[in-house]
Amino acid sequence: MQIEIRSLSYIYNPKTPFGKLALDDISLDVEEGDFFGIIGHTGSGKSTLVSHINALTRVQLKYNKNAVLKVCGIDLCAKKPDVKTLREKVGMVFQYPEYQLFADTVRQDVGFGPKNLGLGEAETEERVRAAVARVGLDYDEIAERSPFELSGGQKRRVAIAGVIAMRPEVLILDEPTAGLDPEGKKELLALFKRLQREACPTVVMVSHNMDEVAECCNKVAVMNEGKIAGVFSPRELFTRRELIKGMGMEMPSVTELAYYLAEGGVPVDPSCLTESELVDGLLNIYSGGDK
């Protein structure tokens, strides 16, 4: 088990009248090999939850007497958890990660993490080279350039390289495709899928975009108002349409289109997830009849 969470709660502004339960008795398991999606509205608690995983938000021990939070074998409910090792094992790509670039050259920026881990020059250099290549950029061309003069998409890749250069066991992605155009989104999602296969077997992706979660993840936790409304496989989602719509969230758009067609009398299976599944389903009905 890479991440184990049992009855974790978190209160914003405790002891004031503005106190708000941001996490309400959360339990979750993320296993090695999972591409785990967490979906919910802005303010549903998903960001608070993942910042616990990286100890950027500490467990409020006072309100969490019986809680369990274990990440890569490190007990975060301990009085003094081993945060340094934890951050080595858990990499986190924040929303709009390109805004955190700071160094003079791409090489230095990507090397910031490995340096903080105390690695030597040679090891750092090797990791930087590998990480830049992994995100699909040409190291020799880009290494000595300033990160600020790159294009938006390149900047984001450099920032992601900065995280994977630390070779984390668990990679957390917070709205990784926000603000990109459809083409850029597609490329980045493909990159994450490849990363998971080749480099970092456990990925947790926080998103408000049901399509990308349904496309990449094998499990999807639906969050609403600080609670987990359920953990489903993408294919199960269509059976929970009422629940998801009821929380004001979108269904995967292919599922939703199929449902809409079925509702109007087109006899197609509404559980399809990808465009080609939907097309095949429709072809079975229509070309069969035509020919």
Binding site: L56, K84, R87, F94, P97, Y99, G113, G162, M166
Partner: peptide
Amino acid sequence: GRMMNAQKARGAC
């Protein structure tokens, strides 16, 4: 705050 968190996640102290 966000930037500090981002750099902390990369091992900054």
